[in-house]
Simulated scan of single mutants.
Amino acid sequence: MGSELPARDHILRQLTDHLDDDTLRRIFPDQHPAAIRDLLLGRQPTTAVNRATAAPTARSATAGKAAAACRLFTDGASRGNPGQAGAGAVLLGEQGEELATCSVYLGTCTNNVAEYKALLVGLEEAQRKGCGQLAIFLDSELIVRQVQGRYKVKNETLLPLFRQVKERLDRFDTWSIAHVPRAQNARADQLANQGIDRQNG
């Protein structure tokens, strides 16, 4: 006799935790992955991404043109925790071309603060370049899950940075955020470390 099936809520939570953004986008191409996760968990979706019904948001400088689809990779580096830190971001266009890079010295902060500040730097650059549709990639699973709404932000230092990120995300037509292995984020990591090295040079 087979073992008893797990509870429905447990199954839904496991699916929510293990289905990545790319898989959800393939299954539900007109919806944002975070909205699908909210529905699976019985929460009111916090990210409206069906462009036919989404509420108007602040537009970029390219309003009236077709919104550019961009990919953003960001990384924060801290030598010590806290320690001297840097932020790196690389913005790619629709064909994978490099649209912009950012390398910034952040002073002394924790690694998680550096990760958030790197994301803010990248979002600012993406808006400046007129990206309307933005796919964001970080190797910090904590930051990704906090922005997705899967983890609550409990650290009082991170909370204002989290709010700034959410406010800037509202300026894009659509956005998604996903975790990638560190090896796939090497360019942003290199830029973050260059920020520290430049200060120490």
Rank of each mutant, 00 (worst) to 15 (best):
F162P: 05
G83F: 05
N193R: 05
P33H: 03
S78Q: 01
I136L: 09
D75H: 07
R79I: 00
D20F: 10
N81R: 11
T174D: 03
P181M: 06
I27R: 14
L19Y: 05
Q31T: 13
R51V: 11
P6N: 09
T47G: 06
F73A: 01
A67N: 08
E115N: 12
L12N: 09
L138F: 05
K117L: 11
P33F: 00
D17L: 05
D139T: 04
L72H: 10
L134R: 10
G76T: 10
L142S: 02
L39S: 14
L19T: 03
L134I: 07
G76M: 06
A87I: 04
L169D: 02
R187S: 07
D30W: 12
N81T: 02
L123A: 07
N193A: 01
T57W: 14
V113F: 00
I11L: 13
A114L: 06
D17W: 02
R79M: 05
E4C: 12
A55R: 15
F137Q: 06
T53D: 05
Q164N: 11
K166D: 01
D189P: 01
F172Q: 04
L40P: 07
C109F: 09
A48K: 11
R182T: 12
K166R: 15
C131I: 08
A68E: 09
Q148R: 14
I11M: 09
D75Q: 04
G130L: 04
K65L: 15
P45N: 08
A52E: 07
R51L: 15
D9W: 13
T74F: 04
G42K: 10
D30C: 08
C109S: 11
H32Q: 11
R13S: 13
R37T: 02
I36A: 06
Q84N: 08
V153Y: 03
N185A: 03
N193Y: 01
Q95R: 11
L5Y: 07
A192T: 04
A126K: 07
F137D: 00
I177D: 02
I177H: 04
G83I: 04
S103L: 12
G76C: 13
L41M: 14
Y116I: 00
I27M: 10
F137M: 08
D75Y: 01
R150M: 13
V104H: 13
C131N: 04
Q31M: 10
R171K: 15
A85N: 07
K154S: 14
